[in-house]
Nucleic acid binder design. Sequence first.
DNA 1: TTTTTATTTAGAGTTAACTCTAACTCTATC
DNA 2: GATAGAGTTAGAGTTAACTCTAAATAAAAA
Lengths: 148, 148
Amino acid sequence: MSYSIGEIVKKTGLSAHTLRYYEKEGLLPFVKKNASGVRAYSDEDLRWLTMIECLKDSGLQIKEIRQYIEWFNEGDSTLSQRLSLFENRRKILEKEMARLTVVMNKIRYKELLYREAVRVGNLDIAANERRLKHLKKKLFESPDDFDK
Amino acid sequence: MSYSIGEIVKKTGLSAHTLRYYEKEGLLPFVKKNASGVRAYSDEDLRWLTMIECLKDSGLQIKEIRQYIEWFNEGDSTLSQRLSLFENRRKILEKEMARLTVVMNKIRYKELLYREAVRVGNLDIAANERRLKHLKKKLFESPDDFDK
DNA sequence: TTTTTATTTAGAGTTAACTCTAACTCTATC
DNA sequence: GATAGAGTTAGAGTTAACTCTAAATAAAAA
């Protein structure tokens, strides 16, 4: 099967502009064109787009994705580079999740604080509520640094 | 206490350029200047910088942070807007963490696959290993979409 | 066959958040 | 007083990843 750029737009949700941009950046090195220059995407190209989406979601930049694709096309001699890429990415994702957990706790504290503040109509009174003071103390090393 | 921009650079890790940029964008509306135009940051300003860092870490754009600061300075009449901001942010962070969990599983599969591929020296052989095939089937609805 | 819709290219424009430059002034130390 | 270092401004430049424009050609529909 082969697909026009319009069909790929529908299948992937990417814009035609973006698809041409990806191609220009070397992310789709195998897209064929017919005699009159119109792109005909293959199922293989579609599978690459799925992989590209995954790598993008994991935080890779376009040039890093291009590097991965180049390694893939070089075959088994680049297996260890590709392994490193995924190891690094896993470690970065772990850090990112840990970071988000910390931020989440702070935002949740603020949400509870403001829920109480809206209830009593005053931020300072809410901040002095026993449960919230306790929570703040538990969450922050220097609680006063978080009073804004 | 008051601090020069250089002292704030050391305390926060932000560059002097960035601090002036934040001020221009309305994130530090209370920074004082001495008679000859040199900035003198207060402990209050430093507390705002801590809060700004937290909001930035949670994914807020600078213009949204400025909005929050404006609401804060307007006092208790904006409590419900601020509550909404933190509710929305908490929901967005929850989605982001869920998204990262999905991505993490895919990247972990790739890491295991390439670890095995490096061990046997061939990607296709590794991909056919029983445990990896099983894992792939478990993780992906259309496993073939993830073969790149 | 005519009209409409889809696709092509090269290249310009956008956005966010910095990041840097130039030219200048102020402050501290020798 | 000379000099080095820190700070000032306005405004230009950077980067990533799009996003759009214009002018043209190709394909599909009426």
